[in-house]
Design a protein around this nucleic acid. Structure first.
Lengths: 333, 333
DNA sequence: CTGTTAGCGCCTTCAT
DNA sequence: ATGAAGGCGCTAACAG
């Protein structure tokens, strides 16, 4: 038997109050006699009432949705940001609605439009690169907007992340301090991945400050992956470059590089030092833990959600939250 | 200047038609004169109209939401399923709304309730284990329900995945055929991860069919991870067990095991063979590609979405789609 | 092929 | 502290 789905009206009738009172109890708004509240809650329990979110959204012109736009799910980094978002949302009535851009600004624009159609309370996206249309939509909407991962530019409303340029400089300093002088770079496509590019720039800048510069660099044409890291390092070394350390665009690439060294019998770090970025678990499980930079992905997601929900009308001034980074000393550089 | 958000009414007015006609054009429903359609589309473009999804959902008692409940985001497996779901959804107007259970049935129940409150077109969840209440809610709702990953039981509506028991048996057969006889098992917590348990059962069954049985087994108390695999294999070997092959609960654990062998100078597979499950990229990037079973996670997500949207009223009979698995020969077993 | 008429279930505003 | 009235923007059902 398919019972009719209970609505506010049913609850109100059962509890002998007006719909309005039930609504107030549910939303914890206005003051309600303890006795009444209890009667209402009992009725809700008895009927197994669950509020219709669509009706609520329509009436209030605001939904309990948090739009989340991620560039990719292939890399473990963004699922970890999403985990942080979930952690920040747990215990609240908000639900995340997800979109994936594959690093394509046009797809992002379309997702911004689709997600705004749900009148979400907030929209979380990545980086500062948006189409003009997308930017306008985000600015004009009065909801809260977070731009994650990067803090090297002025956000529309809120930025949460770290300075990738600074992380690149820190890489340079670490390698220089360890006495490496012939430093190479193994990267991936940075047209799509702007933050990898920013780290590269910071790296070059940091080396230059020490009177050094990259002696060789190779970039894989596609996205980052362990296999790409392995093959790209192999290609770089095959050219006979004399390097004593290689900075990778991220840990995936660096772990791949480590695999190549294992296969080729190259001693790490004695003959070749390796340095990554992200601080992924796999890097720390290598026979020699990877020297890298921890990027606090989970924290970025969690912090963003908490900050967004903290003050739901958008504050007048944009805010930047630096979740920082830290060097993992490791044993490969 | 914050212009008023355009609604159907505005579009209708501008195009000189009734709201209903606009609605029909948008939803591609009923027949419309080519001339009228064009006028409406022009008006939509001119105003930058975006339909209010909440209003649409309320009026039609159905939303363009697909609820997705995942056990975890820590492991790359579920993000890959999610990628498949996204792929299946791309080009449709549906958006996924995500929840994470952390393998807790009570959390799942709460998510089922929260997500049903949005009147989604379909709900995708994992496995066959639900609280009684959750099961009742899923059965009573008339929307489509997919239970992913596993096909070894009767689904509420649709199951998409593979037989984990069969995968376990295939592991046994592979190892036996390669001539290994002293086979050990390194696993993780299977109270939460039922499918790992099913593979273990299949493994034992398969060994028995060959007149073999596990000579030793160790299970890590928590979830699977590379570090856990490394340490758990180390612990197993420290006990002095004479094994010539180890089957791991999954690739994360197996890759960790491989790392231990590297550190401890154990030749793989000569002195110890390793076998995993999932076919993750990292396993194939090892100096010796991991012997394992490919679980087609992406395909599971994509297939599920396609099958669900194919026939939106729930069919009378439950259906099972076997996305299968295949052995990756690798070089470690 | 197009228009008219009623809601969907809830929240907001105003009243008491 | 509670109730009454109206409407959020859209779609369904029925005309024509």
């Amino acid at each position: 038997m398919q019972a009719e789905t209970p609505t506010l009206t049913h609850v109100a009738r059962l509890a002998n109050v007006s719909e309005n009172t039930v609504s107030r109890v549910i939303r914890n708004k206005g003051s309600i006699a303890e006795e009444t509240r209890k009667r209402v809650l009992d009725a809700i329990g008895a009927l197994g009432y669950v509020p219709n979110r669509a009706a609520g959204s329509l009436a209030s012109s605001a939904s309990l949705i948090i739009g989340v736009i991620l560039p990719s799910l292939s890399n473990i980094v963004f699922p970890e940001v999403l985990r942080g978002i979930h952690a920040g949302l747990s215990g609240t009535p908000y639900q995340p609605m997800i979109g994936v851009t594959d690093y394509d600004p046009d797809k992002e624009q379309q997702l911004v439009s689709s997600l705004l159609a749900w009148q979400p309370t907030a929209l979380i996206t990545t980086g500062f690169e948006h189409t003009n249309t997308a930017r306008r939509m985000l600015e004009n909407s009065r909801i809260r907007i977070a731009e994650l991962m990067d803090i090297d530019s002025t956000p529309i409303d809120l930025a949460v992340g770290l300075s990738h340029r600074a992380a690149g400089r820190a890489t340079a300093e670490h390698l220089a301090q360890r006495g490496y002088t012939r430093i190479g770079y193994v990267g991936h496509d940075w047209v799509a991945d702007r933050r990898a590019r920013a780290r590269y720039d910071g790296l070059c800048e940091g080396l230059q400050a020490r009177g050094l510069s990259l002696v060789v660099e190779t970039r894989h044409e596609g996205g980052s992956s362990t296999l790409a890291g392995r093959d790209t390092l192999a290609a770089l070394l095959a050219d006979g470059a004399a390097v004593d350390a290689v900075a990778f665009s991220n840990d995936d690439m660096a772990v791949g590089g480590f695999m190549h060294c294992l296969s080729a019998g190259i001693d790490v770090p004695e003959r070749l030092a390796l340095f990554g970025f992200n601080g992924l678990e796999i890097g720390q499980a290598l026979p020699k833990p990877l020297s890298t930079i921890l990027s606090n992905r989970f924290l970025i997601g969690k912090t963003a959600v908490e900050a967004l929900l903290e003050s739901v009308p958008r504050p007048p001034e944009p805010e930047i939250i630096d979740t920082g980074f830290s060097i993992i000393e490791g044993a490969t550089a």
